[in-house]
Amino acid sequence: MKYPLLFSFRDLIAGKGFVAGVVVDGRVLLEEEGDGEVWMYGVQPGGVAGGGPSRDAAFREFKNRYISVLYDVAQDADSFAVFEREVTAFFNTVSDGTGRDWEAALAEVRRTQASLPGVPTMKAEDRTPTLQIILIDETNSRPSANALDQFSEAA
């Protein structure tokens, strides 16, 4: 079974002489495979995936793989501008094939009303993929920017 998911991640990434806030609303396809594994395949950003023996493990691994790419970019970027450019390129890499599966899964869950237990639902059109990269300094550093990771099922 495949489920179309939406995710929201808000992270602070330390770079060389800067701290960046990376705010992402993305799309990921959750696939429960026959061998008991659960995989999450990124649609946008498309260059990342994560899997595990359960849905929660797959959620964690997907987030770990996503953040590891941001850490790699931060390691190489000599400035905030380079970091911003490279993270934008990462985010804008869409997996077209997985995107088609995501749209098909969305049509299927709308038809069957299938849902993942314990996962909130959200209308897909209400959270389209977006990226914000913010240079953090003392003027815009506020606790209100903190947010937990969120996964929702697109409906």
Binding site: E37, W39, Y41, G42, G46, G47, A49, G50, G51, T93, S95, G97, T98
Partner: peptide, 10 residues
């Protein structure tokens, strides 16, 4: 294997 499959698709 999921990483390999996803990479090949992309």
């Amino acid at each position: 294997i999921g990483h390999i499959r996803h990479m090949a698709r992309l």
